[in-house]
């Protein structure tokens, strides 16, 4: 006895099994990201005044990445619609773009990560703070592209208009401690890396599934087109969810 309703819809629910499954899974994903967002809110409202970073991330890149994901979303839904209209060639084309967009997103994200990991906050022995990217390392001094401020608080709000970055040479003997802008740097960085990292894992997972359906998995189209269309639909639902999470992550992390 085969498992019923793997392809056709069950009459009383109007759904095939995998669709019920993916929506249940997405419900649990909502709770997962919901918990992370509530962590964000709790930690943010609890942060001391003036110490929540503003403008630390590259807004143009974030905007571009948002558009990249939106584009991948429309190609995903078009790929599914193409299958519904029995246009297999168009399906291949649209999902090729989806995969390309996924790669673009991840590349931009890696560039942003790299930028943060090479960014240093340096506490000097005179109590001032140097901040910027290291461009030269010598035995007795380093050169950063950045600035020196008297108060650490000045590093937190980058929306100020008159910030000027220039090459600053710092003697190693002046340095008390230095720290990269990694997840350990402060609560904001911790949230940024954890939330976007987990999101990136979802992008990778979704891209692997879509890549499989685009490549070797697409053989199923010849033997069982309806089942294949269902698989594309279900993987598409996951992909849209990943896009949806990013729609919230972008303003929360980049703009606010």
């Amino acid at each position: 006895m085969d498992i019923p309703y793997t392809v056709e819809a069950r009459p009383d629910t109007g759904l095939y099994n995998a669709k019920v499954g993916i929506w249940l899974f997405l419900a649990s994903e909502v709770m997962l990201f919901g918990a992370l967002f509530s962590a964000y809110i709790l930690l943010r409202v609890g942060a001391p005044a003036g110490y929540w970073p503003e403008g630390w991330l590259n807004v143009p890149l974030g905007t571009l990445n948002t558009m990249v994901l939106i584009t991948s979303s429309i190609t995903t839904v078009m790929a599914w619609a193409s299958l519904k209209m029995h246009q297999f060639g168009r399906f291949k084309l649209f999902h090729a773009i989806t995969l390309l967009m996924a790669l673009t997103f991840l590349s931009i994200k890696s560039y942003e990560y790299h930028d943060k990991f090479t960014h240093f906050e340096i506490l000097l022995k005179d109590g001032r703070f140097a901040d910027g990217h290291i461009i030269e390392r010598a035995p007795d001094h380093i050169v950063i592209h950045g600035r020196i401020v008297n108060d650490e608080k000045a590093l937190y709000n980058l929306h100020e208009k008159h910030i000027q970055l220039k090459e600053v040479t710092i003697q190693r003997s002046q340095i008390k401690s230095m720290e990269r802008y990694g997840p350990w740097h402060n609560t904001y960085c911790a949230l940024y890396f954890t939330l976007t990292g987990l999101h990136a894992l979802h992008v990778i997972g979704g891209a692997i599934v879509i890549g499989f359906l685009w490549g070797p998995g697409s053989k199923l189209w010849e033997t069982d087109p309806e089942r294949f269309t269902n698989r594309v639909e279900v993987s598409g639902l996951f992909w849209h969810f990943v896009d949806l999470v990013w729609i919230f992550l972008f303003p929360v992390l980049y703009l606010l």
């Binding site: 997962l32 918990a35 997840p183 350990w184 609560t187 890396f193 954890t194």
Partner: peptide, 21 residues
Amino acid sequence: FPPLEAAGILQLMDKVAGTSF
């Protein structure tokens, strides 16, 4: 369970990535 999974990930970040959630 997902909120505990989220919490587990956050505590794991605290343990291995030096965050302070």
